[in-house]
């Protein structure tokens, strides 16, 4: 197996065994989605109207939960040095970690979303759009998040500062993702919004490994 695959597999295994990973993110996602009707009332029309936005915001926040440990664990126990000296370039290390994070949080969140959409009285077409937008958009959350995680990896309380750094940068993801659902609800096509979302995600996944690797290098210098 390649070095890349080896690292990816290890990170997935660690996520599965830490008990944090997917289960925690999914519970949080479902919990936020449950609290919203309790807050805004059970008017089914209103819930369908806000579903896209609420579920997108909830998905981003859930993905954030496990993000601060993306590099921090390996940094604290000394694995990161050993990984940095491996034949794998740090950019590819960052990409493997982004992929592992997406597979263990973004993808499960996406798969759960139709169920929550059902609770929000969302029709088939907007539900499908929500599903697609999460599928396309959550990799961008992991990618942009990886930059934040790498910048705060030496901080004891990085989990507090991380959301402040990356949430503003993720505004376009929420806008295009929830926007696509809103367009479909209004009987229009969400294709344009999904296209913009895909462009953002593509750019983020392509560029963020470089920023994350630069920041990991900086921290290894200490």
């Amino acid at each position: 197996m390649s070095s890349f695959g080896t690292l990816l597999l290890r990170d997935l295994r660690l996520a599965a065994r830490s008990g944090g990973g997917a289960a925690l993110a999914l519970s949080f996602f479902a919990l936020v989605a449950t609290l919203v009707p309790l807050g805004v009332g059970a008017d089914l029309k209103l819930l369908a109207r806000v579903a896209g936005g609420v579920l997108w915001v909830a998905a981003v926040l859930s993905a954030l939960l496990s993000l601060d440990r993306l590099f921090q664990g390996d940094f604290e126990d000394g694995s990161l040095e050993v990984i940095a000296l491996s034949p794998l370039a740090l950019e590819m290390v960052a990409l493997a970690k982004i992929l592992a994070h997406w597979l263990s949080t973004g993808l499960p969140l996406t798969l759960l979303s139709p169920l929550l959409a059902l609770l929000f009285n969302l029709d088939v077409a907007p539900t499908l759009t929500l599903f697609l937008s999460l599928l396309i958009g959550t990799p961008a959350v992991s990618a942009v998040g990886a930059i934040g995680a790498s910048l705060t990896l030496s901080l004891k309380r990085g989990g507090l500062i991380l959301p402040l750094i990356i949430l503003p940068l993720l505004a376009p993801v929420v806008i295009f993702g929830a926007g696509a659902v809103a367009l479909v609800l209004d009987g229009m096509s969400g294709g344009g919004a999904l296209g913009l979302l895909a462009a953002f995600a593509f750019g983020a996944v392509l560029l963020s490994p470089f920023a994350a690797a630069a920041s990991v290098r900086l921290n290894l210098g200490g």
Binding site: I147, L151, I165, L169, A171, I175, G179, A211
Partner: peptide, 21 residues
């Protein structure tokens, strides 16, 4: 500095997305 540059790349995109929104 890394964050500032990431932000500099992102700000025009944010501006565009907010106008679209």
């Amino acid at each position: 500095a890394i964050l500032a540059l990431v932000g500099a790349v992102n700000i025009p995109i944010i501006k565009f997305s907010v106008e679209w929104w």
